[in-house]
Simulated assay, not measured.
Amino acid sequence: MTIVVTGATGHLGRLAIESLLAKGVPAGEIVGLGRQVEKIADLGITVKQVSYDDVDSLTDAFRGADKVLFISGSEVGKRIQQHTNVVTAAKSAGVGLVVYTSAPKADTTDMKLAGEHLFTERLLADSGLPHTILRNSWYIENYNVPQALEHGLFGASGTGKISASPRADYAEAAASVLVGEGHAGKVYELGGEPFTMDELAAEISRQSGKAVTYIDLPEAKYTELLVGVGLPQAAAEIFADSDRAASQGALFVPRDQLESLLGHPVTPLATSIGAALA
């Protein structure tokens, strides 16, 4: 069996490969695709330098693949064409199963960030390829704990619950799907231990011994703040919109499906904060 991991040189991709290896998949059966291949040269797997912009190189890399972990691209605004290239290549190469990392509640949410993910889910459905959708909620790493100690936490999510888990939890879940059976056609809503931003601030305060507060802002003001710290306007608007959606419950996802794929509880918030402070 050959498993191909796209986006393998990113944080989630590397963790997924490490989890596959930990589950006993031989290194010779794993192929990692990415742009900065030196980042995974130490894993002992086959590594290929491939971009989502190059459909021909993707097709070549997918040939002979039984399963592909399709990690969504990171360039918001470019993903429709890039993801079309990936699906086209997978279909041309005759991939047996595509496992795609999507966004929470992609088919029902009004969160702007989910638009390209929903497009990709529909693209996969129309392609006829056997596929599995992993709708990953937030990564706890989205929150910079050392920065929060210095400046506090800011956002526009109000008292909305956010079901976040470390990337490692989502990577392990993806690996479980890749080594398991019976996942084709399934859509999994995956989320970790839920918390509000006030609760996140309180946990950082408890463990650090330093008072950390959360300042909730109107969406437009949060957009201005993000632009002020260097984010492009379009990216700032998407991040602020995600917080607006979170305030209305868009990022609250029960943890049961993630725990089912993991075979153990999700990583507790307290553990994640402790690791970030270490």
Rank of each mutant, 00 (worst) to 15 (best):
G10I: 06
D56M: 10
L69T: 00
G185Y: 07
S127N: 07
D126V: 08
Y170D: 06
F62D: 04
P130K: 01
Y188V: 09
S272N: 02
I71F: 10
A156M: 09
G192V: 10
D169T: 04
S165D: 08
E189V: 02
V212T: 09
A174L: 05
I215A: 15
G263V: 12
L262W: 09
A16K: 03
G73K: 07
G230N: 12
L129T: 02
A250H: 12
Q248P: 06
F154C: 12
A278R: 11
G152E: 05
G182V: 00
M197C: 08
S208N: 02
M197H: 07
L225C: 03
A93Y: 04
P104Y: 04
E75S: 14
G13R: 02
Q36G: 13
T223A: 13
L251S: 11
P265G: 08
E29P: 05
S72A: 15
Q82G: 04
L200Y: 12
E150S: 11
L123Q: 10
D126A: 15
Y100L: 06
N136Y: 10
N142D: 12
S57T: 14
P218W: 11
L43T: 00
L58K: 06
I133V: 14
V31A: 05
L118C: 10
G13Q: 10
R14Q: 12
L69N: 02
G228F: 02
A236C: 13
S247M: 07
S72L: 12
F62P: 00
I3H: 07
N136L: 09
Q248E: 11
D60A: 14
S102M: 06
A27W: 00
G182D: 00
S260R: 08
G180S: 05
V68L: 14
T6F: 08
D110M: 05
P26C: 07
R35E: 05
Y188A: 02
T46Y: 03
Q257N: 10
L69R: 06
V227L: 11
Q233Y: 13
H117V: 06
T88P: 12
L15M: 12
V229N: 08
T132R: 04
S157H: 05
P254L: 11
I238S: 06
M111D: 15
Q147E: 14
T109G: 05
S92T: 11
P166C: 08
W138S: 13
G7T: 11
Q36W: 04
D54F: 09
Y143H: 14
D216I: 10
S242F: 11
G191I: 10
L12C: 03
A61M: 00
Q82H: 14
Q36S: 13
A240H: 06
D241W: 05
A184I: 04
Y52D: 12
T84N: 13
G64S: 03
V187L: 06
G10T: 00
A175H: 03
G96W: 07
Q82T: 09
K39P: 03
A270Q: 09
